[in-house]
Design a protein around this nucleic acid. Structure first.
Lengths: 221, 221
DNA sequence: GTCTATAAGGAGATAGAC
DNA sequence: GTCTATCTCCTTATAGAC
């Protein structure tokens, strides 16, 4: 490994770890599998990341950090274009969906790992993983909630939050096991076709968001 | 354990295994943790279930079997009530959501395990787990797809399948980490309130299903 | 059918040479 | 910074007494 720079070495480890965590979850991935794929020595990982937990944290932050920035950036950009007018639900949905769906276009080898990792970690009940996820995502959630409130002032904040959860949930599900969805629908749905997923989701969920709220009480939360 | 019947003993093991698999996934659960919670000897599990894989299979089938029957039964019942007329999308959604949401009402201790297990296994990419899931669920998917086609003849089968995936995905997400959702929404959304989840989801997704399809081509799949 | 004891190997992590 | 070797513990699974 002496011909690799420090950063290259870390990248190789993170790539291998990402794939391993996506495949087997935290417990299912072993450090020895990871170093074999990365082509580095076991002790190197501990030198760079301290522990398996530290490695998991680095893997998550490498993806969630940029994703968070992209989400905030695309929302700001759409709001600039709208010149002070509230965004349409379609635009808000596009801003929610585009950054994660862009990951689907990553080079073939890494594509599945990235998207499946995201789909998988939302279901990991491990306290530390959930804490990372919460801190990395809460700002994004708040920004989108605010955009939705401006766009749909008649719907209560609680209802909007429910509906936003449904969108994140459906998205995670689609990203997580694309192959299973393809098999179960006998090829009718191909989650790797990002443009198709985008248009299907926007059409479907925009109508949902516009549905009258279940009860119109003003929300406090 | 000699004072327990064979079935009671298996039930205790399955309950403990269900909770362990829900918490840590397949790899994260250890046989030793499971027998400690179940209060049985390690060898007993191997006697009854053969292997860790066999135990996982038994855990899944104990829940997915009845769930499958309930889904098919409630759909048939609604169709009987409709006397040959196509079901409304609201009724179809109710039939999709009620059986899983009924699990939320299970005794407190088991509640979280059951629902989180279901949320979790859909993201386990392990081939065997996915195979069990597919065979257990394909019949249910087909039945609901047919009901949707009758109800919404103008929407292509491919679009209906996409939309059905969105519903299953959102449901799995809600069931999987209720606590995280409660924290992230600062208490605005409480996934344990099954009646609330039901009305929110029906209102939201019924409008989505009725949205005009992205393109109206006749579907072959 | 249920137990004890143990096999056989994999796990995370580290010490210390270079 | 990178390697080898190893420590210690835990894993699934089974053999065999009772």
């Amino acid at each position: 490994m002496s011909q690799l720079t420090r950063k290259d070495c870390q990248t190789k480890i993170l790539d291998a770890a990402e794939a391993a965590f996506a495949d087997g979850g935290y417990s299912g991935a072993s450090m020895r599998d990871i170093v074999r794929v990365a082509g580095v020595n076991l002790a190197t990982v501990y030198y760079h990341f301290g522990s398996k937990n530290g490695l998991m944290e680095a893997v998550l932050k490498r993806r969630l950090g940029p994703l968070r920035l992209e989400h905030l950036e695309i929302l700001r950009e759409f709001e600039r274009e709208a010149k002070g007018a509230p965004l349409t639900v379609e635009k808000i949905l596009e801003a929610m969906l585009l950054p994660p769906l862009r990951l689907v276009k990553a080079p073939l080898a890494k594509r599945q790992a990235v998207t499946r990792l995201i789909g998988r970690i939302v279901t990991e009940p491990d306290a530390q993983t959930q804490a990372i996820l919460r801190t990395q995502r809460s700002e994004v959630r708040a920004a989108f909630l605010q955009a939705l409130r401006s766009s749909l002032p008649k719907i209560s904040a609680a209802d909007l939050q429910w509906r936003m959860e449904f969108v994140w949930g459906a998205l995670a599900f689609i990203l997580c096991n694309p192959r299973t969805i393809q098999l179960q629908t006998r090829g009718a749905c191909n989650p790797v076709d990002a443009a198709k997923v985008l248009s299907e989701m926007i059409g479907f969920f925009a109508a949902g968001f516009r549905a009258p709220a279940v009860h119109m009480r003003a929300a406090t939360a």
